[in-house]
Design a protein around this nucleic acid. Structure first.
Lengths: 332, 332
DNA sequence: CTGAAAGCGCTTACAG
DNA sequence: CTGAAAGCGCTTACAG
């Protein structure tokens, strides 16, 4: 007796047995012709294919995955797809994964990293990309299951890592602002990390005090508050480096609302190079992360069977647009 | 002899048999305690849970899916997550699906609807949300497998559909522009459909010729080109209704570059109500789709076992910001 | 070139 | 309250 529940909507599920019967072959032959794993005579092949078509047969991915031990699927953990940069990232990963014949399971870290990882682990993904802050301890479920991971955020001992050189990118951006002649360049971002350090170093290399600094998380809302603070500051800076495009969008809005002109009153440069940065007003001068390369390297590493440790740091490229005071460019 | 390949990275996979052995029970009991499908004595339960923890055991989703006939997973088809509105949508769907204990498989329609649907069908999703243009014929693979679908775009015979009332939304937006006193309101969007018709109707109801119209696809690039055309038009309109926020972002950029002031020289209103619309400059007055409600209804329908036909059309809500000439609002 | 059969890791009706 | 066993739909080593 079968104990299988009816499929959700009661439609009769077509299995390879049905195909085999209709084609007058064994189920093995159906697999052989569908997967090309063994030679099958032309005539038989044609019969099988005809049966597949006629029946609208589609192999059951779960059964296949159970047998093969792989879901042909990658997992991606991002803070959320609402952040423009991570939307860009998600899009890239989807494309590269598809090129490898892999599906993508996007999971937000909204409910915590542990939950996101547990989720992906349970779904037997073949590898996971983590594009947000993560602790080494969060990674153990993956290690236990032998699921490879690569972190796109920060370096963790023994964990594959691909990242942009944030210090270098921020430094070049701040130096560009300095090159424009600004003597008081503000910083908007987290009170730590390479971007902040680059701002400090670039400032002092130019003989300037690194100030003011406005702490802000990586959101537009945070940027908005920082921009409002900047606009209202007693000794207003004439330029600002913002840690991410996403924040910069918020900064721009606050500045506009306060009637502070960009770049005339305050020049702005940021970090990420998201597509968004080309479409805001004014278009942002930004240190662009080499997203395509990062994703390619990360996915290749996940897919390659025996690859060793990975620790890649890629340079960013400063995209010069009009927010810094350079000649307005058209939409890029 | 086992024919199973080693798992990808050679880590020993822990199965429920290992757990059962360690806990000194049968595999059935492991299932019972993990799924709560049958009463298990406290003591046994504790032993099982201990074993699960100690072994780092995680049920195999593929096996479970094969047995249960469900992957506990929904599919979503969007043009791409790069479009802000669809990013908002994706985020909503992910949340609502998660609330139902369902994972989300996001697929872009980049390589064609047939491929996207085939992909999802092969992965045994329990339902699919289609948020982009689709033909009835594309849906047959889903019907064959008994996978329910709901379309968020347009009405198709016999297919569940949830959508915003685009005619009504566009009409209200155009009328708002008219209310501001504009006598020449342009339209940017597709040369068909409810939004265009609403613009035509609202214009003639006000005794005006509906012109000019600039055809544009639903992209920022398209909006940018349309905006440039508008700015250069001989008899420049004083207001424009744009079919989507995404396009409006492009329109704004082109207008800014041409030195055309918004809303002073040209007032702008658009459609969608994406989060983006609150953060561009100036913030957009836009007819907001009731995204949360749409997604909730759609997912509920996918999840409900025997729900009948569904054809819901929800009203939009005009969010008034400063692009139309109303008092500037702060970031919403 | 083709087929019979085992086994992937679960769940559950049935029998203690 | 617990266990033995069948079966979900595939793939593949092995034997024709």
């Amino acid at each position: 007796m079968t104990q299988q529940r009816e499929p959700q909507r009661g439609a009769a599920r077509v299995t390879r047995a049905d195909v085999a019967k209709r084609a007058g072959v064994s189920t093995a032959v159906v697999s052989y012709t569908l997967n090309g794993t063994k030679k099958v005579s032309e005539a038989t092949q044609a019969r099988v294919l005809e049966a597949v078509r006629a029946l609208g047969y589609r192999p059951n991915a779960a059964a296949r995955a159970l047998k093969l031990g792989s879901m042909a699927q990658l997992g991606l953990i991002v803070p959320g797809v609402l952040n423009r940069f991570f939307a860009d990232l998600t899009d890239q990963v989807e494309q590269v994964a598809a090129a490898h014949g892999l599906a993508l399971m996007v999971t937000s870290a909204r409910h915590g990293m542990a939950s996101a990882i547990g989720h992906l682990a349970a779904r037997q993904v073949d590898g996971v990309l983590i594009a947000t802050d993560v602790e080494a301890a969060d990674l153990t479920p993956l290690a236990t299951l032998g699921i490879p991971a690569v972190v796109l955020e920060k370096r963790l001992d023994g964990v594959a890592c691909v990242r942009a050189d944030r210090y270098q990118g921020a430094r070049v951006a701040v130096e560009h602002l300095l090159w424009h002649g600004h003597r008081r360049v503000a910083f908007v971002g987290p009170n730590e990390g390479g971007r902040r350090q680059a701002w400090i170093d670039a400032s002092s290399a130019a003989g300037l005090a690194a100030e003011p600094m406005v702490t802000s998380d990586f959101t537009r809302e945070g940027g908005y508050r920082a921009g409002a603070a900047l606009a209202a500051a007693p000794d207003r800076p004439t330029a600002v480096f913002v840690s991410s495009d996403e924040q910069a969008i918020g900064v721009l809005l606050a500045l506009h609302e306060a009637g502070v002109r960009v770049p005339d009153d305050i020049a702005v440069a940021s970090f990420d190079g998201s597509q968004e940065s080309a479409y805001c007003w004014p278009p942002l001068t930004t240190a662009a992360q080499p997203l395509a390369a990062m994703v390619r390297i990360a996915v290749d590493h996940l897919v390659a069977p025996g690859s060793g440790p990975l620790d890649v740091k890629l340079p960013t490229e400063l995209i010069v647009r009009s927010s810094c005071g350079c000649a307005p460019s058209t939409a890029a």
